[in-house]
């Protein structure tokens, strides 16, 4: 049994006039000590998946099917108070933009201590000790002094470390990192990813790493889930998928990764745009953009099929050409 299990999750946006399915049949397991990378282009539903797991979907979005289990216990359908005790305590969240994720009017220490004392039975003094330890663990030099500084006194990379320390404050088992490096310089990106890997190992945490950058996933994740238009189209061990992508969308994403030293323009972008939720084409949602589409691809949405360790939602995975 995996630490975090997502089963057939569906998320709808329900308004008076219509109901739009934004996530459909999302199934994903994450074990303790494992990093699962979730990739897909903008609007694929990656953040939505993260928000559904921590119960913070913004109305009119809501979970309309499936189940999310944490350590065997279903957390879908829990009340707001129960969900609040899970957030930060059992599932930590790392936000994308370190410039906006911290409250500018409170010192990082105040924000850490308040998060710690909300979840752990600790005095303020003990919480402060823990806060300094967390800052040290996330790689902030002279943490004992920096703890009393305000967010604006830190650089972007340092702020992201503070955000990570905050996500870890309640000692969660699961960490959801939504594009934790997108807003950072390339050199800082690598450091933050290193940190994430180390934290996952040291805390034996289950990490969901959301990104639109397959390169980040290749470097960091043990397993990959590729999302397209609200569905997972391919999932499996990173090495297996990077070695031989079976879904044509995955193959397209891989061709779009710029390799180091390769200064040619990216020739192999995928043409066309991803359909919006509520306006999906018949059959396979990727069909209209797929270089290997066949007439039967418009029949019905393809169900995931197992190929060794990999699950692929494509009728003709053998037609996919690797990068």
């Amino acid at each position: 049994m995996a630490l975090l299990e997502i089963r057939d999750l569906a998320v709808d946006f329900v308004t008076r006039r219509r109901r739009v399915r934004a996530l459909d049949g999302i199934s994903l397991d994450i074990d303790a000590g494992e990093i699962v990378g979730m990739v897909g282009e903008s609007g694929a539903g990656k953040s939505l998946t993260g928000a559904a797991v921590i119960g913070l979907l913004v109305p009119p979005g809501r979970i309309s099917g499936g189940e999310i289990r944490l350590d065997g216990q279903a957390i879908t359908g829990l009340g707001e108070a129960a969900m609040r005790r899970i957030r930060g305590r059992r599932i930590g969240t790392i936000f994308q933009d370190p410039l906006t994720a911290l409250n500018p009017l409170l010192t990082v220490g105040e924000q850490l201590v308040e998060t710690i004392t909300t979840h752990l039975p600790m005095s303020r003094a003990a919480a402060r000790k823990r806060a300094i330890a967390l800052l040290e663990e996330t790689g902030i030099p002279s943490a004992g002094r920096r703890i009393d500084h305000y967010p604006h006194q830190f650089s972007g990379g340092m702020r992201q470390r503070v955000v990570i320390a905050l996500a870890l404050a309640g000692d969660p088992q699961v960490i959801i990192a939504d594009e934790p490096t997108t807003a950072l310089d390339v050199s800082v990106q690598a450091q933050i990813l290193d940190l994430l890997r180390r934290l996952c190992r040291d805390h034996d945490a289950a990490v969901l790493l959301i990104t639109h950058d397959l390169g980040v996933v290749a470097e960091t994740a043990d397993r990959v889930a590729v999302m397209y238009a609200g569905r997972i189209v391919e999932t499996g061990p990173t090495a297996a998928i990077m070695g031989r992508p079976r879904h044509p969308y995955t193959a397209g994403l891989m061709r779009a990764i710029p390799t180091v030293g390769d200064l040619r323009p990216r020739l192999a972008q995928i043409g066309g745009a991803m359909p919006r939720p509520g306006a999906l084409p018949h059959g396979c949602a990727f069909g209209p953009r797929c270089p290997a589409a066949r007439p039967d691809c418009t029949a019905a949405a393809p169900v995931p099929i197992r190929h060794g360790d990999v699950l692929v939602a494509c009728r003709h995975p053998d037609l996919t050409e690797a990068a």
Partner: peptide
């Protein structure tokens, strides 16, 4: 974002709204 992040950390509603 910082209010969303405060929520995502499981802070109590009073802390989120007022602090």
């Amino acid at each position: 974002d910082f209010v969303k992040f405060a929520r995502a950390r499981g802070l109590k509603p009073a802390a989120v709204y007022f602090r």
